Simulated assay, not measured.
Amino acid sequence: MASCLALLLVVVFTVVAVLLRNTSTGVIFQTSDQVAMIGIGVLLACGALLFAAPLARADADGIEVRNVLLTRRFSWQEVLSVSFPDGASFARLELPDDEYHSVLAVQAVDRDRAVEAVRALRRLHKQARD
């Protein structure tokens, strides 16, 4: 979905940039304006692609969670539980002091894959805590 949106943004901004020269608004658009419009499209596309970057890697020692920009590693000893609350869009790691960390890589729209991912994370968590 993110790559389709990124492609759409680049195409739309490129088309707008090409059509800028042919407007009768009285404003004079230069080649630099056209290049800037395409550049804005590329920047917005890169921003859209950031939402395709979430990742969760778990092993016997802990879990590494990369959301949109930041990556954090948690040992299983730090994690109280792995949950997926009703109505939530993402799974989350319950942490001490009523804190939690969202796991954007496990999304509700993935349905069965999300269920399997949460079950696998819970198994790893249980094995590490026992």
Rank of each mutant, 00 (worst) to 15 (best):
M1P: 13
M1Q: 13
A2H: 11
A6Q: 10
L7E: 09
L7F: 10
V10A: 00
V10D: 01
T14N: 00
A17Y: 01
N22L: 01
T23N: 02
T25W: 11
G26N: 11
F29L: 03
S32D: 11
S32F: 04
S32K: 07
D33N: 11
Q34L: 01
Q34H: 00
A36D: 06
I38C: 00
G39P: 03
I40H: 02
A45P: 00
G47Y: 08
G47Q: 12
F51V: 07
A53I: 09
D61C: 02
D61Y: 03
G62L: 09
E64D: 10
V65G: 02
L69C: 10
L70P: 02
T71C: 07
R73K: 15
F74L: 08
F74W: 05
L80I: 08
L80M: 10
S83H: 12
S83R: 15
S89A: 15
S89P: 07
R92Q: 15
L93K: 09
E94Q: 14
E94F: 03
E94R: 11
L95H: 03
P96E: 06
D97F: 10
L104W: 06
A105E: 13
V106S: 04
Q107E: 15
Q107N: 07
A108M: 10
R111D: 14
A114S: 13
A117S: 10
V118P: 13
R119N: 15
K126S: 14
Q127C: 08
D130L: 04
